[in-house]
Structures are given as structure tokens and as C-alpha cells.
Design a protein around this nucleic acid. Sequence first.
DNA 1: AGGTTACTTTATAAAGC
DNA 2: GCTTTAAAAAGTAACCT
Lengths: 206, 186
Amino acid sequence: RLRKWNERFRTRDSKERNLKQALGEIDRMASALGLPDNVRETASVIYRRALDEDLLPGRSIEGVSTSCVYAAARMAGVPRSLDEIADVSRVEKAEIARTYRYVVRELKLEVKPADPEQYVPRFASDLELSEESEMRAKGLLKNAKEKGVHSGKSPVGLAAAAVYAAALLTNEKTTQAAVSEVADISEVTIRNRYHELLEAEDGLVA
Amino acid sequence: MTNPADSIEIQNVVASTGIGQELDLEALAEDLPGADFNPDNFPGLVYRTQEPKAAALIFRSGKIVCTGAKSIDDVHEALGIIFEKLRGLQIPVEEDPEITVQNIVSSADLGHNLNLNALAIGLGLEDVEYEPEQFPGLVYRMDEPEVVILLFGSGKIVITGGKRTDDAEGAVEEIVERIEGLGLLG
DNA sequence: AGGTTACTTTATAAAGC
DNA sequence: GCTTTAAAAAGTAACCT
């Protein structure tokens, strides 16, 4: 009986220490990514659930914490790309992707792919573009979605191309290199998606 | 209107077998021209057949994995070649080692573009994984036949995880039915 | 700008860390 | 869980001309 009590105590104690460390990591990463408090709170709630449902044994606290931040940012409509997440995490990208899928599957979190439009405000702001080009970028993406050109394409790449195209359409100075820098998407991809967005816009141009 | 089932092509067959005899891989690596053996990296010796084209992983236990063949007949042919090579090296090999097909990878074309976002919701998020930021294909785990299907925006698909030749046919039939039922095909 | 090569995902066996 | 093998799908990326 004493052994059982000790086990429970030890388990509860270790879970508390685990949680404390995880919440610290979540706070650190959320701050580094400039994510709002509600995202940090959501990530914490997801982490608590993962801990309660014994998803931790077998994986690292850091990996699960990172996955929670990735999932929470998306759920809140302020997605961060896997590359951005990996930049502030101690865990490598491949493990984050693997752990994220595991957490989403086990906790049955219905996280859908990020909507490209959700990346637009941040990219436009980083590039100091006007409200007008931001709206045009979103418009280009809405049209692309209606035409069904988005399947399989990276939401980040689509958003980057839309922001680039919108800047040109509103005569604001930007370069593919600048967009590539803020979105972390290659210039080749921005060029490819850019052409597709314009084609979807009016069967011609180029 | 072409039938998607007619577009099915087997791309890879993985099978396992064994010769019922322990092997000295160091010696085998010397005697088998073209054999790759790096025990520090991987415990198996890699041997490739040219015709049919396939790769075999040969283990110390005598167990063998054959992969890369384009049909079940090719798997048997490739392994037959390997069995003869071993016998030629005075290594006893069972009469007709049992060969078990472990996985068949096939590709097919549904003939219409697919809206993967709509499909992810329609097929049910619990059986689907769709992360376009990481990989362009939608991963769908089908119950019957029990296979995994990768669906792309172009309508091209990959069926894997099946052990029987007709699993791909059944999977294509089933996925076409489900997509049509959702009104998402073409 | 284009071409090539290579990495991402799925399944699967094998022996061993 | 990882290591190695093979093959397809389509997107992205690095490198070279």
C-alpha cells in the first residue's frame, strides 16, 4: 500500500515537474514567435491534455511542447510555418512534424491546414505594404481558392506570391527577394505561384 | 470515359523469404560481385539484380527481403536468381523457400482534379492527414481494403500497404465511390 | 531563367542498437 | 524509435549553367 502511494506521489510529482518545464518552453517559444496570450494558453491546455492522456512517455517534452504551439497558433488563426516554429525550438523539424501528427491524431484535434490568407497580414506588415495591397493579396487568394488552384500547394508559398503580386498591382516597391526573406519561401516558388494566381485571376496575363 | 481501375500500375513489390541457412555475410560480400555490405551502417547485405530489376537485403540469419520489383512474378524471378547464385557458392538453399508478399505499391489516375481541402473534410478528418505545407498529398487510411492512399490535386493517386494484387483495384473502386458520393469528383 | 538532383509523405520486411 | 531498400505522386529547394 505504501509502495502504491509512493508511485502515485512520484507520478504526480514528475508530471508536475514535466508540466512546469513544458509551460516554460511554450512561453519562451510563443514569445519568440510573437504569438498572443490566447495562443500560449491554448498550447498549454493541449499540453495538459497530452500529459493527462499519457502521450509523453516515449517523446521529449520539448518536442510535444513545440507541437502544441504549432497546433495552437493554427487553431487561433495566426499560423506560423513549420520552419518558423523549428527556428525557435530545440527540436529538429522532422521530429516536430512527426510529434505534431501524433498529438493531433491522439487528441483528435481537428486542425485544418492553415488558410493562406492568415499569413498575409504579417507578411504585408513586415514588408511595410499598404492596407490596399493586403486586401488585394487576400482577394487573389480567395479567387485562387474558388478556382481550386490551391490543392497540394504550401499555404505559405501561396501567401507569399499573393503578397508579391498585390504589391506589384498597387505599384508598391517590393522584390521577390524581399518577400522570399520574410516568408522564407524560395524566389522560384514565389514566381511559380505568382503566375498561377494571375492566371486564375483572368485566364491571360503572365 | 476511361475507367480509373484501368490506369492502375504496380510500381513496387516488397517480399520476404529465407533460405533456412545461416550466412557469413563478410564472405558472401567477397564472393558476390556488386554486393554492398556495411555492417556499421546496416546489418543486411544489399544485392541488386538487373533483370528483373530488384534489390535484395540479405541477412546473417538467412532471411531475405526483396524490393523494387514491378510484379509478384518479378519478385519470384529475382529471388530465384539469388537462390541460384547462393547455390553456386556452395551455400545450401531450401528447395522452394516460401516467399511472402509484404507490400504492394501502385499508382493510378482518377482522371479529374481534386479539391483536397474539401476532400479532407468529406472523407473525415479522423482518417485523413493533409498537411500541404509539408507534403502535397492527402493521406487517407482506408479500412476495406486496408490500404493507405495518397491523393494529389491532379487526381493521380498512390495505393500502398496492400498485400494482394487486387487490393489496389478494390481501393480505387472504393475511393472513386466515396469521392463521387461527396460530389467532389470532376 | 531553366535544368538536374534531391528531399518531403505512405507501407513493408529484415537484425540490432 | 532509428538504420537500409524500392517506387510513385507533386511541391519545394539547392546548385549549376
